[in-house]
């Protein structure tokens, strides 16, 4: 099972560190990261493996959302199924 974490907002020091830190805390492995910084806007999409997650997925979602609020970023954590079902026949 995999999930997608997207982070969009103003670039600051340590975004990747903090997001992946939460992943590590929940035993969630980061599989792939694409990121770009255009002027000072930061956009990152992270594919993570949640098969061996410690605790609830919804807790992870809450933590990420809280981090987003703290850093002034928009962070979405969603199960990959929603993208797969919406974009493939």
């Amino acid at each position: 099972m995999r999930a997608v974490v997207t982070v969009i907002g103003k670039d600051t020091v340590g975004i990747l560190h903090k997001v992946s830190g939460i992943c590590a805390e929940y035993n969630v492995n980061v599989i792939e990261v694409t990121q770009s910084v255009l002027q000072d806007m930061f956009a990152m999409i992270m594919l993570v493996d949640i098969s061996d997650i410690k605790g609830d997925f919804s807790e992870l979602v809450d933590r990420m959302t809280a981090l987003g609020t703290e850093l002034g970023l928009s962070i979405h954590t969603m199960h990959e199924d929603i993208f797969n079902s919406m974009h493939s026949v």
Binding site: T6, I45, L47, E80, F83, H87
Partner: peptide, 16 residues
Amino acid sequence: MLNVYNILETIRMIQD
């Protein structure tokens, strides 16, 4: 297969 465009499209649909 997931791609960036699709992921952002889904998020835009929900957010905006």
